[in-house]
Design a binder for these strands. Structure first.
Lengths: 340, 340
DNA sequence: TTCTCTTTCGGAAGCGCTTCCGAAATTGTT
DNA sequence: AACAATTTCGGAAGCGCTTCCGAAAGAGAA
């Protein structure tokens, strides 16, 4: 029974003995076609192993059924989690996800100059990545909704954590353990010039200290590109540049903490006996390395972003500019921190 | 100068004062249209901020310009790297990448039942993930090329490492350091039933031992789902179930090694003083944790897979079934292994 | 200057589908 | 049984583009 495959609706219609339009209706509308003929068409379609060409369908219908997801780094944990969450809800909604890697400023320019005008997508999700007013305007002009994930925005709906709160959770934890001399390794992305240079996490560090009556010591602070090795170097610098070793280190992310951890171990400093260490993320390796951290569910944030897309496409008012979701965070105490 | 945007080629043609067909040719063919008129059209297009609708273009042309990338886990390092490499070459070739997450067998069934028939893509790259003969046939029927990444296949082009070789590199390293009592933590994916149960890495373990005159001891071996924590447990089991502690541990991946490392540390076993540890991958954390490993460049494998796609689409004979690329691997010696 | 050979361009068909519109068939009403 | 109200279905236009084909225009040859 090698039943041939139908490549077009026309073939199915002919096979079913109805007109093209009726066949189309049977497959979609479901109205204006009798149950009997619908069955006939459906049977024919199944017989011929036919499925509509979504492209032609959309061309005629005028919608895309696709959403772009733009990430600055595909390979990092955070972005993988995010994409995974987004994919989950988009695929459930039968939307296709087109992945775009936009590394540096050049890429970004290129991407925004091309995709938008190409009207290939109904929406674009930008992950931890800024879109300026002009680009936003262009995108909206062609009817593409914008959603931000992993970063706040006044111009479009977003989902992210409260970076300041996350920082405070970490810092307050250290302070409550009695730590006073606390170093910080801050993460930054040189390729994202538009991104707020000083994140809420840094602000949290400074304010938490000041509220405890401590003036932040610049020699205890380093700003590095995300990545464990950079943090490892920063940790060395910090240890070298100060006479009095800090009793705790707050890093902007777990991956930075891992790097710091390496340096500490190499220097013979035990964690947490000699020095406490805390990160942010709850990266899977954090559990393995017993790192105390501020947990966030990135995959779930991705899912939330996906839901924002769905709402925006449905034209619901709830997905308007500035409407954001703040994802929950939570201190996860492991054995990398202890009383001073 | 709020120049309005053109939504269709027709508008551009009118604006440029040429016919629709001429405008189309000016934008594509580049043949059969004089330089002067081409300039006119190009100027008009630029004036009106116009870009062709790739969908309509493809509908008319009959090609998709898209390739599906199917991964069982988006969020893991390996897959992130792979996708990142694929994306790099596809986007350079102006192909869109549609990402599909296919977790378990149900997803797989669903995916293969839908996408193929939907003729949405020109090719599909399956990452570390089996496609049976029937599915392959269906995909080819609709003209979609298949490429495998991170796994071998007799039915379509692939790119992967030689797992056996990788395992041998690791095992031979340990053996050459004098280790004789070597444990193994093997990785497996319960959601990938079609995947070879016993990978080349396991075979390498056994053969390397036997060649040295050692009969593999089952109590020194565990097979776990990928993920550090599982490996941590496996490591505990191994330590518990044997009187004589192994002098070295070979894990199928670095992430498994990380988990094993945790257990070893907790048990007070020093690496490498008391026990040597080796993995496969050269995961970024391996450098941080000083793990000796067998390095592979996964991103580059992704890029290679992308190139295979390009060749397959170009109809080149070099991308035929079974034609594979074996990516290079290399032992990276760090301080987690030493002479026994 | 007249007649070919090219080159350049417009017309029109068609990609596979949706959907408006009106004709035919069916059902209900009196 | 005759007529109106529905329902079901086919015809055809059109989504935005590509491309074949042939006409018009320009260039070259005689």
């Amino acid at each position: 029974m090698t039943n041939q495959t139908a490549q077009s609706l026309a073939e199915v219609a002919r096979y079913a003995g109805v007109s093209l339009s009726t066949a189309s209706r049977a497959l979609n509308d479901a109205y204006g076609v009798s149950a009997a003929t619908r069955m006939k068409v459906l049977a024919a379609a199944s017989d011929l192993d036919y499925v509509v060409s979504p492209d032609a369908s959309r061309l005629a219908r005028g919608t895309m059924g696709r959403v772009a997801v733009v990430v600055p780094h595909i390979e990092r944990w955070f972005f993988g989690q995010m994409v995974s969450g987004i994919e989950r809800v988009l695929s459930a909604a039968d939307l296709d996800l087109m992945l775009y890697h936009v590394g540096d400023a050049v890429d970004r320019r290129d991407f925004l100059a091309r995709l938008p005008a190409r009207r290939k997508v109904d929406a674009v999700v930008v992950v931890a990545f800024p879109v300026n007013e002009e680009d936003r305007a262009r995108l909206e002009l062609i009817g593409a909704k914008i959603i931000a994930a992993g970063g706040q925005s006044a111009s479009y709906p977003y989902v992210c954590i409260d970076d300041y709160e996350a920082g405070r959770l970490a810092m307050d934890h250290l302070l409550s353990l009695g730590h006073r001399r606390i170093a910080m390794i801050a993460g930054t992305d040189p390729d994202q010039p538009g991104w707020p240079a000083v994140s809420g996490r840094t602000r949290a560090y400074e304010e938490a200290l000041r509220e405890t009556g401590i003036e932040p010591d610049p020699s205890l602070t380093r700003v590095v590109d995300w990545g464990p090795l950079n943090a490892a170097n920063a940790m060395e610098e910090i240890l070298d540049s100060t006479q009095e070793t800090p009793t705790a280190v707050f890093t902007h992310s777990d991956e930075l903490a891992f790097g710091a951890l390496r340096t500490l171990r190499r220097r013979g400093l035990r964690v947490p006996e000699d020095i406490s260490l805390i990160g942010i993320d709850n990266h899977p390796m954090a559990e393995v390395l017993e790192l105390t951290t501020v947990a966030q569910d990135v995959s779930e944030q991705g899912a939330a972003a996906g839901r924002l897309v769905l709402r925006a496409l449905a034209g619901e008012g709830s997905a308007v500019a500035g409407t954001g979701e703040i994802a929950p965070i939570k201190l996860v105490t492991r054995s990398s921190t202890r009383k001073v």
